[in-house]
Nucleic acid binder design. Structure first.
Lengths: 234, 234
DNA sequence: AATATTATATGACAATTATCATCTTAATAA
DNA sequence: TTATTAAGATGATAATTGTCATATAATATT
C-alpha cells in the first residue's frame, strides 16, 4: 500500500506531469503510469532514438535538453526542434504508427522516462482532456513548424540567427554569468538556423563587433535584445 | 422523415466524408453534421479565411483547390500547403483555440462546407475513432511540414523545384493534354518552393531546355520523371 | 478592335551564402 | 605534460540566388 503511494508520488510530483498533456491524468491513471514507465539516463551526445527506429511509446523528459534532427545527404545535421524538461518526445510517430522521422539526441545530460504506447492509447481513449491536450500539443508543434518554415524562406541567415538567439534566451534563460544557458556548439546553432557552420561563426563575430552579443569563450551573452529584435523582424 | 434521409445522404455521399477524419462518423453523427453545416462556393482568387481571423469551425473541401499561405513583410506570399477536395481546412487553429495562422485562398473554384466548432468538439469527445483520425491527420501535416522545412535548408532551389513538380504531379495528376492539372502561376509556384518568381521562371526555362519538362503556354508537362527524381534527390 | 493590364521571359548585376584553406584556441587522450 | 583531436575563427573565392530593368506574350477592359 505504502509502496503504491510512493510510486504514484514519483510521477505525480514529476515536472513532466505538471507541464505536459499528462497533467490531465487522474490519480488512478498516474498510478498506472508510474507502474508502467521505465527510467533512463542519457549522456550528452547519446541518442534517445534514431530516425527509422520504431519506438512504441513516448519519452518524458525529466531533465536535460535534447535535439530532434535529421542528417542530410551531405552529412549536415538539420535541427528541427529543441526539447527540454517537462516535454514529451515521440508523440507524433507513436500516433501516426510510424517509425521515428527524426533522431533525438541529448545536448545536455538527460533523465527520461519511457511510457509504452498501450498506456498512452488507453489514456487517449478514456480521458477526453488528455486527448485534447495531446492534440493541442501536436497542433502547437505544427504551428511552430509552419512559422519556422516561412521564416527559413523569408528571412536572411542574419535575421534567423538573431531570431534564434532570442528564442534560445526566451526558452532556456541565462546562466549566472548572463550567458545563454543552453550550450550549443556553433555547428549545432548553424544546424538550427539552417546555414553553414562558418557562416554562423562569421555572423556571431559580426554581432559581437556590433555590440549585439558578447562571446565569452564558447558561450554567448545577449547584450542588446532590442536591437536583436529589430534585426530579426526587419 | 424523408427530408432527413435526403439531408443525411448529402453528407454521407460526400467525398470529404469518405476521405477525411469524418469517415469515422456513424449515421446519427452524419445526420447531425448535415443539419449543422453550411455550404459555400468560392471563386478562384477569393479567400476562405484570412490570417488572424477567428473561424470557429472547420471547412470541408468538396471541390476545387486551395492554398494556405502567409504574406511576408516584403509582400511575397509564401505558400505553406495546397489543399484539395476531400480534405479538412482549419483544424489546427480550431483545436488550438487560436485565430488562423495562415490565409486560405482558392486557386481553382471551390465548393466548401463549414462545420461549426461545437459540432466537431462533440464528435471529438464522443467518438474515439474520429479523435484518433483527426489527431493522425494533424500528425501527418506535422511530419510533412518538418520534412519540407529540412528540404528548404538542405536542398537548392533547383532541387526544390524538381521535387515540387513531382509532388504536384503525384497529388493532382495530369490533364488530358498530359500537363499538370493544378494551374499555378509562376508566382505561386515560386511561393511554394520559396524563391523569387524570376528564379522560378528561369529554372523552368532551364528544365525545358534540358528536356525535363515542356512548357505548353503557361502549363507544364513533365517529360522525364526519372531525371527529375534524380535531380530532386541528389 | 484597340488599349490597358497582368503574366511570363530574359539579361545584367549585386548581394548573400557556401566552400575550401589555413590558423588559433580549447578540449581530450596518451 | 605533451600529443592529438576537435572547435572556433577568418580570409579568399566561387556558386547560388535575388533584384532591377526591360521585353514579349497573354488576358482583360473599354
Amino acid at each position: 500500500m505504502q509502496q503504491t503511494t510512493i510510486v504514484m508520488n514519483k510521477c505525480d510530483q514529476c515536472i513532466v506531469r505538471q507541464l505536459s498533456s499528462l497533467k490531465a491524468l487522474n490519480k488512478d491513471e498516474v498510478i498506472k503510469l508510474a507502474s508502467s514507465k521505465t527510467s533512463y539516463k542519457i549522456k550528452k551526445g547519446e541518442a534517445i532514438f534514431e530516425e527509422g527506429e520504431v519506438t512504441n511509446g513516448v519519452f518524458c523528459i525529466k531533465d536535460g535538453v535534447g535535439k530532434l534532427s535529421k542528417l542530410s545527404a551531405n552529412g549536415k545535421d538539420q535541427i528541427v526542434k529543441l526539447v527540454k524538461s517537462g516535454e514529451l518526445l515521440g508523440q507524433r510517430s507513436m500516433i501516426s504508427n510510424e517509425p521515428a522521422n527524426l533522431t533525438a539526441k541529448a545536448i545536455a545530460d538527460m533523465e527520461v522516462c519511457f511510457i509504452p504506447k498501450t498506456e498512452i492509447i488507453n489514456f487517449f481513449n478514456n480521458n477526453n482532456q488528455f486527448s485534447l491536450n495531446l492534440m493541442q500539443s501536436v497542433c502547437e508543434d505544427l504551428k511552430e513548424s509552419e512559422n519556422e518554415k516561412i521564416a527559413l524562406v523569408q528571412k536572411t541567415v542574419k535575421q534567423r540567427l538573431a531570431e534564434t538567439l532570442l528564442h534560445l534566451h526566451d526558452e532556456f534563460g541565462e546562466d549566472t554569468d548572463k550567458t545563454l544557458r543552453v550550450q550549443l556548439t556553433r555547428e549545432e546553432l548553424a544546424g538550427i538556423i539552417g546555414t553553414a557552420t562558418e557562416s554562423c561563426i562569421r555572423l556571431l563575430s559580426d554581432f559581437n563587433k556590433l555590440g549585439l552579443i558578447e562571446l565569452v569563450g564558447k558561450k554567448i551573452m545577449l547584450k542588446d535584445i532590442r536591437a536583436l529584435k529589430k534585426l530579426a523582424d526587419n
